[in-house]
Design a protein around this nucleic acid. Structure first.
Length: 462
RNA sequence: UCCGGCUUAGCUCAGCGGUAGAGCAAUCGGCUGUUAACCGAUCGGUCGCCUGUUCGAAUCAGGCAGCCGGAGCCA
């Protein structure tokens, strides 16, 4: 029984083969006098295989109806091609047609706009560009696991449903089984969550960090890689309501170890994709972001710039650049500032650290100057903030005071504080938006186009 | 959420006061070891929705909706 060979493997063949079985979808078909050229793609790689269907085939009349999008199986010989553009082609002995796509197949043999393809997100992976994007997405996520695994990091599954509001990192989606048409109320007229599934309010996670810290303080080095949810009404090319985040956490590590890890990880992943998705990346370099490969090679080969927040403010003040928001110590960095630093000033990724404590989260470690925290952001050209991390505050008293200063309830974080109570150690970690790294690696400019079925405000189709 | 832009054939767009166009796709035919082939023909539209201005609206004005871009928030 002849087994199916994937096209990616077939195209790497050294020599012709007498009998192969290929299954896939028709990209396009061209008729010649006594035969038909069928371009077949099976998703295993960007390239198609050209099939010669001679009119001697017993179902040649059916073969001539094979339209773009139709599915089929071809049994035949892999031979050297007489045409110019490909090394091998298949001369079919037998063609089994699974399904003929009707003439209203929405994907034509031409370029479509990303906006149109978003309306057919269920079919867009069949296009060259999206097929490439989602092969890269798979390979990039493998690279992340490989990077951490090779360094002895443990993969931890932090909860998707959470009862705590963590760092207050944005609006959360509520998870409930209460009847929305008939909500149980307490005596003072508020919703009675004690009758809800968990007996209290529950939400989708906005970060696995606090849970991740607990495991780092037990297993040493850990990372999470899973879905994250933000109910922010953000309408930008860089935000989605559901996205994937990578959050490593290292025990016995400081902010400098954290920056090293972030830089090494980005370089490793970019290099992995350059080496393992060459054809796909070349497509992006050609049609999506000219100069992409040079940009990625620059990231792999050159170090990231590293500056403090104070230095960043100083650079911007002296730059002569006309910023809408004037750079001054204490301000939150705006998109224009991030882009200036990464794109104009350094022209490569830049890591900014030691931010004013007022603009950062409660768990970030207070520096000795008393006014900055050991936080770091990795800013990359074209995207802005891709990574946000910090050394965590490991001193119990300082952390408790910070919780109070920020108006948070100490009792909500008692389990978290336990880690500072029992054998606390310096530790550090960061969060990386997976889709943002996808945008960096592919050059694709919209987050909606690097996630299979994007969820954004007012949009949850498919 | 704020600011701007767009919405005309299946897709991409032109037309910007006188009653609907192109390219591609599709369909049919021709030609050819072709490369998103080529040539010819055919099919295809309440010009996003509502209201108004006008003798007359795809075109001007107002409202609504959807989409896109920028900003904010962040990953």
């Amino acid at each position: 029984m002849l087994k199916r060979t994937k096209i990616a493997k077939l195209l790497q063949a050294e020599a012709p083969m007498d009998e192969v079985l290929v299954k896939g979808w028709v990209k396009t078909r061209r008729d010649s006098k006594d035969f038909s050229f069928v371009e077949v793609n099976d998703g295993s790689c960007l390239k198609n295989i050209q099939v010669i269907a001679n009119n001697t085939l017993n179902n040649y009349n059916e073969v001539k109806k094979l339209s773009t999008g139709s599915s089929l199986a071809i049994k035949g010989a892999l031979v050297e091609s007489k045409g110019g553009s490909q090394k091998f082609e298949i001369v079919a002995d037998e063609i089994e047609i699974y399904d003929i796509a009707p003439d209203d197949y929405p994907l034509q043999k031409k370029k479509h706009t990303d906006e149109y393809l978003r309306t057919i997100a269920h079919l867009r992976p069949r296009t060259n560009k999206y097929g490439a994007a989602f092969r890269v997405r798979s390979e990039l996520s493998y690279a992340i696991h490989k990077f951490f695994h090779d360094r002895g990091f443990r993969y931890v599954h932090t909860p998707i449903i959470t009862g705590s509001d963590c760092e207050g990192a944005g609006e959360m989606f509520r998870v409930t089984t209460l009847d929305m048409e008939n909500l149980p109320k307490t005596k003072d007229g508020k919703v009675d969550y004690s009758q809800d599934f968990f007996g209290k309010e529950a939400h989708l996670t906005v970060s696995g960090q606090l849970n991740g810290e607990m495991y780092a303080l037990a297993l040493g080095d850990i990372y999470t890689f899973g879905p994250t949810f933000r109910a922010e009404n953000s309408n930008t090319t860089r935000h989605a309501a559901e996205f994937w985040m990578i959050e490593p956490e290292m025990a016995f590590a400081d902010i400098y170890d954290d920056m090293d890890l972030a830089e090494d990880m980005v370089k490793f992943c970019v290099k992995h994709v350059l080496e393992n998705c060459r054809d796909d990346i070349e497509l992006f370099d050609k049609f999506v972001e000219p100069g992409l490969i040079a940009k990625l090679e620059n990231i792999v080969n050159n170090g990231f710039a590293r500056i403090t927040y104070a230095e960043a403010i100083d650079i911007m003040q002296k730059s002569g650049e006309n910023f809408e928001y004037k750079p001054e110590f204490g301000i939150d960095m705006q998109t224009e500032h991030e882009r200036f630093l990464a794109e104009k000033h350094f022209k490569r990724p830049v890591i900014v650290r030691d931010y004013p404590k007022e603009i950062k989260a409660f768990y970030m470690r207070l520096n000795d100057d008393g006014r900055t925290v050991a936080a770091m952001d990795v800013l990359v050209p074209g995207i802005g903030e891709m990574i946000g991390g910090s050394q965590r505050e490991e001193r119990y008293d300082v952390l408790v005071q910070k919780i109070h200063e920020m108006g948070m309830k100490e009792e909500d974080y008692s389990w978290y504080l336990d880690s500072r109570k029992y054998g606390s150690v310096p530790h550090a970690g960061f969060g990386l938006g997976f889709e943002r790294m996808m945008m960096l690696v592919t050059g694709i400019g919209n987050i909606r186009d690097v996630i299979p079925f994007p969820r954004t405000p007012n949009s949850i189709n498919f």
